[in-house]
Design a protein around this nucleic acid. Sequence first.
DNA 1: CATAATGATACTAATATGGTATCATTTAAA
DNA 2: TTTAAATGATACCATATTAGTATCATTATG
Lengths: 137, 137
Amino acid sequence: MKLITRDTDYAIRAMCVIAKRKDKVVSVKDLTDYLKVPRPFLRKILQILNKRGLLKSYKGIGGGFTIALSPKKISLVKLIEVFQGPIRLSEHKLKKKICPEAKICLLKKRLDNIEKYVKARLEAITLETLIEEAGRI
Amino acid sequence: MKLITRDTDYAIRAMCVIAKRKDKVVSVKDLTDYLKVPRPFLRKILQILNKRGLLKSYKGIGGGFTIALSPKKISLVKLIEVFQGPIRLSEHKLKKKICPEAKICLLKKRLDNIEKYVKARLEAITLETLIEEAGRI
DNA sequence: CATAATGATACTAATATGGTATCATTTAAA
DNA sequence: TTTAAATGATACCATATTAGTATCATTATG
C-alpha cells in the first residue's frame, strides 16, 4: 500500500523548487540536474501539472515553468489527486451484494473516519509550509 | 490509492463470519453462499490465513475453518499486512540521490506521523470490535 | 470406497506503475 | 531567417500488482 506514488513524489519536489524560484522560469533540464530524476518522466509530469493549471509553461529557448498559483493554495491532497485520483482508503461499498452483513459495514464508517483525518492532514501540508519550514533550517 | 485491497476486504468479512460461529467449522461453500464472493479466490485467501496461523483448517467432509486466535487479537493492521505487506504511506527515502533537498524531507517526517496515526487506528479495530458493534445494532 | 472438503501450485487477464520515444510547435537569439 | 532549445501531444513499452481461475493431490467421514 502506498499513499504517494513516484509521480506524485516527483511532482511535489519539482513544485517546491519551482515555487521557490518564484517568477523565474525553470526548465526541465534545470530540475532533473538538481533532482536526479528521469527527464522524460518529469516532463510528462510537468505537462500534466500545466494542464491542470498548477503550473504555467513557456515554450522556446529559455522556456520552462513557473508556478501558477500561490504555494499556499497547493496542498498534498491536490497533488495526490492529480496523479492518483481521489483518495479512498477502502472501496468497500455498502451494497448488499458485496456486503450482505450491513452491520459489518461499521467497518466502512470507521475507515471513512480515518480517511477524513488523513485527508485533513494532507490538506494542511501545502507547498508553502514545505518551503517555509525548509527555509528555517 | 487504496488502503485495503480486495483480498484483505474479503478476508476481514470472512474472518468476522468465522469468528462469530465460534467453534463451528465453516466451509468455503457456506462463506461464498453468504458473502457472494468468488469461491476459488476466497479459498486461496483462507489458505493463506491458515498458513499464517489465523485460522485452523479441517479437511474432509464437514471440513472447513475455525478461528485460531481470539478475535481480540486480530486487528486490521494484521490482516492488511498479511495481504499487502507492511504499511508505509510513502517510500520517499532520505537518500541524497533521491532527495538532494534534505530539507524537503520534512515531508517524510510529516507523512510518517500520519502513518503512525493510521496504524494506531487500524490496530484498534479488531475482529472483536467489529463483531461486537454489529451485535449491538 | 465415494464424496466433500482443504492443500498446493501453476496459470491467466486486467490494470496500474514507471517509465521511453518521437514528432510537432513555439520562441529567443545569432 | 535560420537554428537551437525549450515545451506539447501522443503513442508505446516493461514490469509489478491485483484479482482472479484451474487442476490435481490429500484427507477425513459416512
